[in-house]
C-alpha cells in the first residue's frame, strides 16, 4: 500500500516535470540562422545591423540580407527578431564586421564588445573584422559570392599556417581581453569587399583599449604575427632582384631589466628557399638583403608604436615575471617607450 502511494507521488512529480518546459522548442527548419553580422552607425546616432541569413530550400539554396536600425544593438536585435518570419537564432554567427566609423568613438566600441561578449546568444568565438567600406556592401558581396556557404568565410581567416601567413583572425573574446590587458594591444584585420574574391585583406588596425591608433600594412601584420608566435612559414618576399619563400621560422626572446629599463633581445631565424633570382646574385647577398629588410621594417613599426604607446607586439607580456603586478599597470606609459629591442634576423638557405 505504501509503495503504491510512493508510486503515485512519483507519477505526479513526473507529470509536473513534463508540464514545465516548452520554451526553447523550435525546430531547426523554423529558425533563421544568420552567419555574418555587420554593425555600423549611421549619422552618428543609430546603429545599423546587417545580417546575412542563408535560406535552406531543397534544390536551390539562397540567402538574403536583413537590416535593422535602432538606438542600441540589443534593441536592433530584438527588432529583427520581431520582424523576421522565423525565430532568429544567433548562435551560428561566425563573423562580425564592424564599420570603422563606429570605431571612432572608443567608448562605444568598448560597450559594443562588452555587449557581444556578454550576450548569451552570440558566441564569443565569432571573428571580428573592421572595414572602411559600407558594411552592407561587404555583406552583400559575401552574399553574392558565397551565398549559403558563408560559413566558409571562417576559412578565409583561418587558411592555416603555411598558406598565407599575413592573414590572421581575431575573435570577440580576444578583443575583449585586450580592452583590459595592461601589457598587450591587439591588431584587428581590416577588409574590403573584393571584386572577384569575397574579401580583400587591407592590413590591420591597432586597437588600444577600444581606440584605433593606426593602421598597419599586411607586411607589418605578418611581422606582428611572428611575435604572436605564429609561424612565418610560407611567406613569399620579393627583394627586387630575387624572390624567396620562407620555409621555416622560429623566434626566441630574451628579456632583462636594467635600472628600470626593459630590454628585449629577439632572434628571428628564417629558413628560406630562393624561388627566382637575377643572374649573378649570390646567396649571401640575398640573405643580407632579407635580414636588413626585415629588421628595418621591424624598427620602423616599433618606433611608431612606441610613439603612440601601444604595445602591439605584446612585449609587456614577457615582463610579467619581472615587474610587480601593480607596476605593470603603467607598462604602456612608463616602460614601453623606454623599451630597447635588439632584433636580429638570421636567414639560412635550405
Amino acid at each position: 500500500m505504501r509503495n503504491n502511494k510512493l508510486f503515485k507521488l512519483l507519477i505526479v512529480f513526473m507529470s509536473t516535470i513534463l508540464l514545465c518546459g516548452c520554451w526553447d522548442i523550435k525546430d531547426i527548419n523554423k529558425r533563421s540562422i544568420p552567419l555574418v553580422m555587420g554593425i555600423s552607425k549611421e549619422d552618428d546616432e543609430e546603429y545599423k545591423l546587417t545580417l546575412q541569413i542563408p535560406i535552406p530550400k531543397n534544390d536551390d539554396q539562397i540567402s538574403r540580407i536583413v537590416t535593422g536600425r535602432g538606438e542600441t544593438v540589443a534593441s536592433v536585435l530584438g527588432q529583427i527578431r520581431t520582424n523576421s518570419e522565423d525565430a532568429v537564432d544567433f548562435s551560428q554567427i561566425r563573423l562580425i564586421v564592424i564599420q570603422k566609423n563606429l570605431a571612432k568613438n572608443p567608448q562605444e566600441l568598448r560597450d559594443l564588445i562588452k555587449f557581444l561578449m556578454g550576450s548569451e546568444d552570440i558566441p564569443s568565438r565569432a571573428l571580428v573584422a573592421l572595414t572602411d567600406d559600407d558594411v552592407e556592401n561587404v555583406l552583400s558581396n559575401i552574399n553574392d559570392k558565397l551565398g549559403v556557404h558563408a560559413s566558409s568565410i571562417y576559412d578565409y581567416f583561418n587558411k592555416g599556417a603555411g598558406w598565407v601567413p599575413e592573414i590572421f583572425s581575431i575573435t570577440i573574446w580576444e578583443v575583449y581581453r585586450s580592452l583590459y590587458s595592461y601589457t598587450k594591444d591587439i591588431a584587428v584585420p581590416v577588409v574590403r569587399s573584393g571584386k572577384d574574391t569575397v574579401l580583400k585583406f587591407k592590413g590591420a588596425a591597432i586597437l588600444k583599449k577600444g581606440k584605433i591608433i593606426e593602421t598597419i600594412s599586411p607586411d607589418e601584420c605578418q611581422l606582428v604575427n611572428v611575435f604572436r608566435n605564429n609561424n612565418e612559414k610560407g611567406r613569399i618576399e620579393s627583394l627586387g632582384f630575387a624572390s624567396i619563400i620562407v620555409t621555416n621560422s622560429s623566434i626566441k626572446n630574451k628579456t632583462s631589466m636594467k635600472n628600470n629599463k626593459p630590454t628585449v633581445s629577439s632572434n628571428l631565424r628564417l629558413k628560406i628557399y630562393i624561388l627566382e633570382r637575377k643572374e649573378g646574385i649570390t646567396n649571401k647577398r640575398i640573405r643580407k638583403e632579407l635580414e636588413k629588410l626585415t629588421e628595418k621594417r621591424f624598427y620602423r613599426l616599433l618606433k611608431r608604436t612606441q610613439g603612440s604607446q601601444t604595445d602591439i607586439f605584446g612585449f609587456g607580456q614577457q615582463f610579467h615575471q619581472q615587474i610587480s603586478y601593480h607596476e605593470l599597470k603603467d607598462w604602456r606609459n612608463d616602460y614601453y617607450p623606454k623599451l630597447k629591442v635588439n632584433f636580429q634576423v638570421h636567414a639560412n638557405m635550405e
Binding site: 526553447d24 522548442i25 523550435k26 531547426i28 530550400k57 531543397n58 539554396q61 537564432d89 551560428q92 560559413s151
Partner: peptide
C-alpha cells in the same frame, strides 16, 4: 533538431535544416 541546434557546427546545422 528542435531544442539545441546551436551546438551543431554551421555546415551541419544548415545541412540538417535543409
Amino acid at each position: 533538431v528542435s531544442v539545441n541546434p546551436g551546438i551543431f557546427r554551421t555546415d551541419l546545422a544548415l545541412f540538417v535544416a535543409k
